[in-house]
């Protein structure tokens, strides 16, 4: 290790100085580690900058990539705000003790179901699990009552999903929370046997649309967005919402939190207030994101199934355990 340190040090001396200097910034900027879809933040960040005059810098990545990075960086992190697509990554950072407690003005806006009891972060949008099905290959009568049924032999060779993504892992976390470890392992083994694995929800969508797969497990907005954009990969498919508080009706919460290491706490709070406030939520609702705003005052229109008609299972967002999910999925052989 000493040798490594020497080498890196020498290399740093020989080539690093001008680069490190180039990294400095004059104006204070709010650094957001963003695991949400880039396009979504590219709509809301400029609006926030215009409203408050605070400059925002986005560093984009994936849920667990960024949460792990935050854990690694610890106190030294540059990050002020962390945004995710799904809650397990938020829980990971929360458990590492890196989040600053949020003030009541922010927490009270969002219903308690969509934020942890700790008050260390809050949900700001949510997405519903759906089953996308190819309308030429699947009759509506065939569609299962529960997502657990997809492990049954009758679905052999017909289903697809993207197990390497945080989206699907959040769904597994919900199944684990609702059904317990044994049932979840059996379910995972069943769908592994039955299904085709793709990398990315868009790929699943495309596979279903082209008929390579009959049904696919994704979140609602992938299909909805594609429909809005012209239906390249959704014109031969429809989506089916599970109901009856089935694990398949799981509503995954996208979280926002402020890092303890931030030296711009006030600005970070302003950003979160904007994000959950009516103005920010309206921007989200009108945007191309098509995710459900969690501020009850702002409805999502644009033809998506109304929030009130969803019938999700009751899951405490704090209880979704990404580590147990990864272990289980590794054991079953997805990872």
């Amino acid at each position: 290790m000493i040798a490594t340190r020497t080498a890196l040090g020498l290399a740093a001396l020989s080539l690093g100085l001008p680069l490190l200097a180039a990294c400095g910034e004059d104006e204070p900027t709010l650094v957001i580690y963003n695991a949400q879809h880039e396009q979504l933040l590219e709509e809301i960040a400029p609006a926030f900058e215009e409203e408050t005059g605070i400059k925002v810098e986005l560093r984009n990545g994936k849920d667990l990539e960024l949460s792990n990075q935050l854990v690694q960086e610890g106190d030294a992190s540059d990050a002020d705000v962390f945004l995710t697509e799904n809650s397990p990554a938020m829980s990971q950072v929360e458990q590492a003790g890196l989040f600053e407690e949020l003030p009541a003005e922010i927490l009270d806006v969002i219903p308690a179901t969509y934020r942890p009891t700790s008050g260390l972060w809050t949900g700001f949008v949510a997405r519903s699990t759906v089953l996308v099905y190819n309308t030429d290959l699947v009759e509506t009568s065939e569609l299962p009552d529960s997502i657990l049924d997809l492990a049954d032999p009758e679905w052999a060779g017909r289903i697809s999903f993207s197990p390497t993504g945080a989206d699907f892992q959040a769904i597994v976390a919900a199944v684990l929370e609702l059904e317990g470890e044994e049932a979840t392992r059996a379910w995972l083994e069943g769908i592994k046997e039955n299904g085709t694995v793709y990398d990315g929800n868009n790929v699943v969508l495309e596979a279903v649309d082209s008929g390579e797969s009959e049904v696919g497990i994704v979140y609602h907005y992938y299909w909805e967005r594609d429909r809005v954009e012209g239906g390249d990969v959704s014109d031969n498919s429809q989506q089916y919402y599970f109901s009856d508080q089935d694990a398949g009706a799981f509503l995954s919460v996208s979280g926002a939190g402020i890092l303890k290491s931030s030296d711009m706490n006030d600005e970070a709070e302003e950003f979160l207030e904007f994000l959950v406030g009516e103005q920010g939520q309206q921007i989200l609702a009108d945007s191309y994101a098509l995710e459900y705003p969690l501020n009850p005052a702002v409805p999502l229109e644009q033809g998506v199934k109304p929030f009130a008609e969803l019938d999700p299972p009751q899951v405490n967002v704090s209880d979704l355990d990404s580590e147990a999910v990864v272990d289980l999925m590794t054991e079953v052989g997805f990872l």
Binding site: M1, T4, R5, L8, G9, A11, A12, L15, G16, L19, L20, A22, C23, Q69, Q72, E73, A76, D78
Partner: peptide
């Protein structure tokens, strides 16, 4: 891994990327 463990200040800098390319 090495940058996080040994020289955390270098992690997430262009320098590490350049070392990688090198």
């Amino acid at each position: 891994t090495v940058s996080i463990r040994v020289v955390p200040t270098l992690y997430q800098t262009v320098l590490v990327l350049l070392l990688g390319y090198t």
